[in-house]
Amino acid sequence: MKTRLRPPGFVTSAMIFAYAFLYGPIISLVFYSFNESKLVTVWGGFSVKWYSELFKNEGLLNAALQSLKIAGLSATLAVIVGTLASVALTRFGAFSGRNLMQGILTAPLVMPEVLLGLSMLLLFVSMEQVINWPQTRGWLTISIAHVTFSIAYVVVVVQSRLKSVDRSLEEAALDLGARPWKVFFVITLPLIAPALLAGWLLAFTLSLDDLVIASFTSGPGATTLPMLVFSSVRLGVNPQINALATILILLVFAGIVVAGRVIRANKD
């Protein structure tokens, strides 16, 4: 009866359509980044001139550096806080406030960005009035905001890993008298390392990609890459943005291939 489980014609054609739908726009974006003509949709011959212009665009490079800094910082913090939360939720059994904790860690996953952005800006403004900090809004306030919504994603990834790892090693170590902290660092941490890496990469990309929350929580001095891209594409298509998009897509591709290798190597 195996044959019954093979995808029938309808499902196969629906899948082909869906993958074309997912990848068509991305492929067209990459294709037109090599277009000589400034009119993005008219083919004027092969050229890499938009790439060289991109690397001469100082404002864009500064914004990219700013974004990388924020993404690195917020991903690292989100993994630390998110891992603590995941350990509490999977290893501590029932404790008071567990349901509330699970709730506030799930809500940011679906909360519209305009809500997160506005409410967090109002927090920073009120904090400045009450405790005189933060005096300027910029990379630090954006990073705090990014940590807050990234934690939720880190928890999803790390929690599911913590649930699935074999507990007998932890139990054995505890039976032999090891302290819980030692058990965590020597046994649990190496077992969940691939999930920590995946969570970090996820938080990093989410931060690098965020426009709305950064726009709300940023100050006059700080412009991130998505903010710059947004103000440019608002005016219509721009081949430099196509070139930038192509580079980002290549980086993501490379990142996923490397992460896949690392995870597979860890499994063996």
């Binding site: 997912l22 991305i26 891209v229 594409v233 930038l244 980002l248």
Partner: peptide, 21 residues
């Protein structure tokens, strides 16, 4: 992997791609 991959590429850029189309 092919489903997850677009999720990792910028949301803003994927929306932008539709302007050209």
């Amino acid at each position: 992997m092919l489903v997850i991959l677009p999720f990792w590429t910028s949301f803003l850029i994927r929306v932008y791609a539709w302007i050209g189309l």
